[in-house]
Simulated scan of single mutants.
Amino acid sequence: MAITPQNNEAFLREVDEELRRDQAMQFWTRYGRWMIGAVVLALAVFGGVLFWQNRQQQLAGEQGEKIATIFEKLGTGDEKGATAPLAEIAGSGIGAYRSIARFTQADVLLQKNDLKGAAAKFAEVANDSSAAKPFRDLALVRQTYAEFDSLKPQTVIDRLKPLAVKGEPWFGSAGELVAIAYLQLRRNREAGALFGEIAKDQKVPESLRQRAVQMAGVLGVDAIDQGEEKKPQ
């Protein structure tokens, strides 16, 4: 019996579907276990990431509480009680808490006039690529402050000049050290100009600005911002 075009088309579809099922079965037989393994692995990784994030948040909360307790101990003069937990967070802390702990260690050493030890602690933060840039920059300024008397003036300038620019977060502190280094090299014009910029920057702490005004005046630079002139009474 002859097969009509319609029957022929239906027959071809059945053959094609059967071939697809056969190919699918062969594919599943060959790769099915690997696919299941990949899915299980992906779920395990995803679960691990969620667990890690949750644990990091818990640790951050715990370390935040420890830092607060450490500051309380230091505030009451209990340096001995703060030393061990501070060292723990400084060595294995999370993100900003590790930097804060190292800063605190360095400040304690500064209070003891241990400039070398303090500079080393500040350097740890400055060289920590995982720390936020503002932390690293401030640590570099503080390190330079601790080492200032043992550094060549040009070293201070080369190290801090990128931070001694108006608009940078630590412009005032870095700029003051750079300006003093200019004075040591008898580059009074550059020192005066930098002191003048610091004096006119409203974002710089008031005490630092006042020092800059005085230094700029000594060097013959008008450091009074026109916007700060007293209003007529």
Rank of each mutant, 00 (worst) to 15 (best):
R55A: 12
M1K: 04
Q202N: 11
F122R: 04
L59M: 15
M215F: 12
Q105G: 04
D78C: 09
D225T: 02
G64F: 10
I180M: 12
K166T: 07
A216Q: 06
L140N: 12
I70C: 03
I70H: 07
L74N: 11
Y97M: 13
W28A: 11
Q226P: 04
T83Y: 02
G91A: 13
W28E: 00
R189S: 15
L109S: 03
T144V: 10
R20M: 03
A179D: 02
T144D: 09
F46S: 13
A191M: 07
L208M: 08
A164F: 08
A2E: 12
A101C: 02
T76L: 11
S129P: 00
F135P: 01
Q154Y: 05
A123F: 00
R13G: 04
V165S: 15
A132H: 10
E9P: 02
R33H: 02
L19N: 11
D137F: 10
S92Q: 12
A106L: 01
Q226N: 11
Q111A: 11
K66D: 04
Q56P: 03
I224P: 00
A42S: 14
A181Y: 09
G32V: 03
D107S: 13
F71P: 07
E79P: 01
L74V: 14
R209Y: 03
G77R: 06
A174F: 08
V15R: 14
I100K: 08
R211F: 04
R33T: 07
G77S: 08
S129Y: 01
R186T: 11
F11W: 13
E88F: 12
K161P: 02
D78W: 05
K161D: 12
L115C: 03
K116V: 13
R211A: 02
S129H: 06
L19S: 07
D137Q: 07
L160S: 09
L74W: 13
P169G: 01
W28H: 00
N8V: 01
R186N: 08
K80F: 07
R98P: 04
L177V: 04
E18F: 06
Y145Q: 15
L185Q: 15
N8K: 14
M35I: 15
L110T: 12
Q105M: 13
A38F: 11
K161H: 05
A212P: 00
Q105N: 05
G196V: 05
V49C: 00
E62I: 09
N7F: 09
Q53D: 10
E176A: 12
G47K: 02
S129A: 12
Q143C: 10
L74R: 12
E229N: 13
T69K: 08
D149K: 14
E14G: 08
G75V: 15
Q26P: 00
V141W: 02
Q154H: 04
R21M: 11
A24H: 08
L185T: 02
I180K: 15
